[in-house]
Computed example of a mutant assay.
Amino acid sequence: MKHKAIAMLSLTLFIAAPLAAQARDLGEDMDILNANYSAVMKSDNPAALKKGLAGMHEAALDARKGTPPKLKGQPADSPQMKDFRQGIDTLIGQIEQAQALADKGDTQQAQTLAKQFQQTRNENHAKFR
């Protein structure tokens, strides 16, 4: 019985490990951010706006774990990597502010705030793309 349990646990870990390791790459996260940004800006439906912001938030959190191609090989604690993560943190903060407005039902103000996402993107693409 003990051997069966160990074998099942080993098999489960063997199967689940590759699934857990499959994180999106930075390019995929940026594509998700862009698609959801378009949805947020075109939306007149509060539920769709919230869904788009949630998608952006999730992609930005995942992107924070990545490394831009321009910084490949840089140590995680390098000034450039810290600057990259700060840019992502700025975007995450903006998204969270827009989500708070959308949750209160102020979709117009949430979309107005979302326009700032583009400036954040442009500033950081100039540095890291």
Rank of each mutant, 00 (worst) to 15 (best):
Gln74Val: 03
Pro68Glu: 02
Asp83Ser: 15
Pro68Lys: 03
Gln94Ser: 06
Gly66Glu: 02
Met81Val: 09
Ile95Val: 09
Ile95Phe: 04
Thr90Ser: 10
Gln86Gly: 03
Ala76Met: 09
Leu71Lys: 04
Pro79Gly: 11
Pro75Phe: 10
Asp77Met: 08
Gly66His: 07
Gly93Lys: 14
Gln86Leu: 12
Thr67Glu: 03
Gly87Met: 04
Ile88Met: 11
Gly87Asn: 04
Lys72Ser: 12
Asp89Glu: 13
Pro69Glu: 06
Pro79Cys: 12
Asp77Ile: 07
Glu96Tyr: 05
Lys82Trp: 07
Glu96Asp: 15
Pro69Ser: 04
Ile88Phe: 09
Gln80Gly: 02
Leu91Arg: 01
Ile92Ser: 00
Pro75Ala: 14
Ser78Gly: 08
Thr67Cys: 06
Lys72Met: 13
Pro69Gly: 09
Phe84Glu: 02
Gln94Ala: 04
Leu91Val: 02
Lys70Gly: 01
Met81Ile: 07
Gly73Cys: 09
Met81His: 13
Thr90Lys: 13
Pro69Gln: 04
Leu71Ile: 02
Gln74His: 14
Pro75Gln: 12
Thr67Ser: 01
Arg85Val: 04
Thr67Met: 10
Arg85Phe: 08
Lys72Gln: 15
Leu71Gly: 06
Leu91Phe: 15
Thr67Trp: 06
Thr90Trp: 06
Lys72Glu: 15
Met81Phe: 11
Asp89Phe: 11
Met81Lys: 12
Thr90Val: 08
Gln74Phe: 14
Gln74Glu: 15
Pro68Trp: 07
Lys82Phe: 06
Lys72Pro: 03
Gln94Glu: 14
Glu96Gly: 01
Gly93Cys: 01
Ala76Trp: 05
Phe84Arg: 02
Gly73Leu: 06
Gly87Lys: 09
Phe84Trp: 15
Arg85Ile: 03
Phe84Met: 02
Phe84Thr: 01
Lys82Glu: 13
Gln94Thr: 00
Gln80Tyr: 07
Pro69Asp: 12
Lys70Arg: 14
Asp83Glu: 15
Asp77Thr: 07
Phe84Pro: 01
Leu91Asp: 05
Asp77Cys: 04
Phe84Val: 00
Gly93Val: 00
Glu96Leu: 08
Gln86Glu: 14
Arg85Cys: 02
Thr90His: 13
Gln74Gly: 01
Lys70Phe: 10
Gly93Met: 07
Arg85Lys: 15
Ser78Glu: 12
Pro69Lys: 10
Ile92His: 04
Pro68Val: 01
Ile92Thr: 02
Leu71Asn: 06
Gly73Ser: 08
Ser78Gln: 10
Leu91Lys: 00
Gly73Ala: 07
Gly66Tyr: 07
Leu91Ser: 03
Lys82Pro: 03
Glu96His: 03
Arg85Tyr: 08
Gln86Asp: 12
Ala76Tyr: 09
Asp89Thr: 11
Ile95Trp: 03
Gly93Pro: 00
Asp77Phe: 11
Ile92Met: 02
Leu91Pro: 00
Pro79Ser: 12
Gln94Cys: 00
Ala76Glu: 14
Ile92Asn: 02
Gln80Cys: 05
